[in-house]
Design a protein around this nucleic acid. Structure first.
Length: 308
DNA sequence: TTCCAGGCTGCCT
DNA sequence: AGGCAGCCTGGA
């Protein structure tokens, strides 16, 4: 048996952390091998001491997908120096922003609204298994691609609700239809200016500002895109407790604070905070100890910090 | 059991 | 412009 091609990343790389950092939701691990699909291609990857072994799949496609060309040492040289960003870098060193296919990235993040990662993963795998094209077998298990827009558009809403999509079912259907009927100009999303691309993303049903930025960061590779989710909003509360958290001003603030590769900082912070404070109440406890108490807790959380 | 999770949409001021 | 309720489901 010929040895697998070995890819050498530019700077640090952690395959496991990258594939498990909330960018993609369908890769599975067994015996040190990560198995999944990139578009319609089976990928089996293993991290060795010298690099990344591509045991199944096109090495060039794998290197592109894993963004092994991103010069992380150079990126770390200009990393923000505030305590949270430094802590995030210490824990997430080697995580890369992947280059995902546009449609499956879009569809996956439409289904992610108000869902925990475990559930997003379950939905993603169910959609692939039930409706995606099989791209190969690994360890006697079939691996599936994400179903195409044209195929998803033909499914009844009840079928999407059956995999647990809930109110997101009609949104995903409408998005699939919009893609299948060429109502979305993907050239603008991929090659337009930031503003043009964002506006085109917002035409997609079920896509708001947060998901649009996920698309720009994880599929288009725009490192200046900053998805602001609940975790990043918590970071904002620490940095500017008197400011508004929901407006576009928040994004401008983060861009100024995190620099041109703000998307990378965002991803590290997201992963770091979720892993460190993901337990119920852990973030509230952290804030009581170290955080800034000036801002009153939101109505949503009030019962936690102010028991009646 | 209750709470809340990587939001979007439509409607309100 | 910005705030808010409602929406489905399942994990902790």
């Amino acid at each position: 048996m010929t040895p697998s091609p070995c890819l050498i990343p530019k700077g640090p790389f952690s395959l496991a952390e990258t594939l498990d950092s909330g960018q993609v939701f369908h890769f599975t691990e067994g015996h040190g091998e990560w198995v999944g699909a990139w578009d319609h291609q089976l990928l089996v990857l293993h991290q060795s001491l010298s690099g990344v072994e591509v045991r199944v799949g096109d090495p060039e496609a794998a290197a592109h997908f894993l963004a092994l060309d991103h010069d992380l040492d150079r990126l770390y040289a200009t990393w923000p120096t505030d305590p949270l960003s430094v802590g995030a870098l210490a824990q997430c060193r080697g995580i890369r922003i992947l280059r995902q296919p546009l449609w499956e990235c879009t569809a996956t993040f439409i289904t992610s609204a108000q869902k925990q990662v475990a559930h997003i993963r379950a939905i993603s795998l169910a959609l692939r298994t039930r409706h995606g094209r099989m791209v190969g077998l690994w360890d006697a298990q079939p691996i599936h691609a994400y179903p195409s827009p044209a195929l998803l558009a033909t499914l009844p809403e009840s079928e999407l609700r059956a995999v647990g999509l809930g109110y997101r079912a009609p949104l995903l259907l409408a998005a699939a239809r919009a893609f299948a009927e060429d109502q979305i100009d993907t050239r603008i999303i991929l090659n337009g200016t930031k503003e043009e691309a964002l506006a085109e993303c917002l035409k997609i049903p079920g896509v708001g500002v947060k998901v649009a930025n996920c698309i720009l960061l994880f599929a288009v590779g725009r490192m200046d895109a900053i998805p602001i989710d609940v975790w990043i909003r918590r970071v904002l509360e620490q940095y500017r407790p008197q400011g508004r958290q929901r407006t576009t001003g928040a994004e401008a603030f983060l861009r100024g604070k995190f620099g041109p590769h703000a998307g990378y900082v965002q991803q590290y912070l997201y992963h770091y905070l979720r892993k460190t404070f993901g337990r119920r109440g852990a973030w509230e406890a952290f804030k009581l100890g170290h955080g800034n108490p000036r801002r009153a807790p939101s109505r949503r959380n009030r019962s936690i910090t102010e028991p009646t």
